[in-house]
């Protein structure tokens, strides 16, 4: 209608225009009602101000017809709003059978995306344009929420069962600043909740195929891969390389050092210790720290774990 307050982000999914249309419709009707009623109220306040208009000139204390009108009209508007919202939302909750499925794991504080052929990524979710995408999502620790403003979708990730959402991107993300649409975690999940962001990269089918088959990718050395994973899997948010304590202990000089735990015997940080710590940090809690590290069990393959261990070993004291 008038689109008084249309600040919605770029429309990049099949239903984004319909969501915005109803959003603007509701905003317009709300604005008109609020302005009109406030105007009437102010008019009364001025027109009938005491002094200018000393005695009340109406005694009406009810009017059945009027009251019926102002009960029925808002009811109709409400049922209509429910209906339009329901109509589009039903579609949002009904993924088509031919949708490309991508797994999403949320952890403190990052995302892990697993494509149909087992390929994974973390900082960017890559999807083909014009095709339905279904995200099958689970959290490996606390609640998170997957929010893509440009697609107008959001759904929480829980630790006890899978949740899903789907969308069909209508445009590629080329024109977007940074080349990706923002993804946010929308459910509070601890210290670095506001750092739990990623990008949605929408590309052509051909580019998507190249991406998941890693065509054109350079083979990384274990150390390089470890450094990449240290960034992508968000180890960086909790473990520093410069010796400073952040949420977790620093990696500097960790390899070969003596570790003390809140419970049980001390141990030396060898390869096996590092491996268990990465996969299941909760097993032994390092003294002076809290049990907040997500378990990476099932999210890293052997090659990646070895790479991370190599990377940690390289952080000499």
């Amino acid at each position: 209608m008038f689109d008084f307050f249309d600040y919605m982000p770029i429309q990049a999914s099949t239903w984004a225009d319909r969501v915005d249309w109803m959003n603007n419709w509701i905003t317009d009707v709300s604005t008109i009602c609020t302005v009109a009623i406030t105007a009437v109220m102010l008019y009364f306040a001025i027109r009938y101000r005491a002094g200018k208009h000393s005695a009340p000139s109406s005694k009406a204390d009810h009017n059945l017809n009027l009251e019926i009108v102002w009960t029925v009209i808002p009811s109709i508007v409400c049922v209509y709003c429910f209906y339009i919202g329901f109509d589009v939302y039903k579609e949002m909750r009904t993924p088509p059978a031919n949708a490309t499925e991508i797994g999403v794991t949320g952890f403190k504080w990052g995302w892990n995306f697993t494509y149909e052929n087992g390929k994974t990524s973390s900082k960017e979710l890559v999807v083909p344009v014009g095709e339905p995408i279904k995200l099958v999502m689970k959290s490996s620790d606390v609640l998170h929420s997957f929010f893509i403003p440009s697609m107008r979708v959001k759904e929480d990730l829980r630790g006890d069962r899978y949740s899903y959402l789907w969308f069909t991107p209508t445009i590629t993300s080329d024109e977007q600043p940074g080349g990706v649409f923002p993804i946010f975690c929308a459910e509070y999940c601890g210290v670095n909740h506001s750092g739990m962001r990623a990008g949605l990269k929408v590309v052509s089918r051909a580019e998507y195929n190249d991406f998941i088959q890693e065509r054109g990718a350079i083979e990384l050395s274990p150390l390089e891969l470890g450094a990449k994973l240290y960034n992508e899997k968000a180890c960086i948010t909790c473990h520093s390389l410069d010796g400073s304590k952040v949420v977790g202990p620093t990696f500097k000089g960790l390899y070969g050092a003596n570790r003390e735990f809140t419970e049980g015997e001390p141990a030396v940080a060898d390869e096996n210790y590092l491996r268990t710590s990465i996969l299941n940090a909760g097993k032994q809690i390092v003294s002076g720290y809290q049990n907040v590290m997500p378990a990476f069990e099932g999210q890293l393959n052997d090659k990646e774990i070895d790479a991370l261990i190599a990377f940690i070993k390289a952080q000499k004291p």
């Binding site: 239903w15 969501v19 959003n23 109509d87 949002m92 929420s145 959001k154």
Partner: peptide, 12 residues
């Protein structure tokens, strides 16, 4: 309260 718009607005 409208489902389709709340999917965008929730927790913002």
């Amino acid at each position: 309260a409208t489902l389709a718009t709340d999917a965008h607005y929730h927790d913002t």
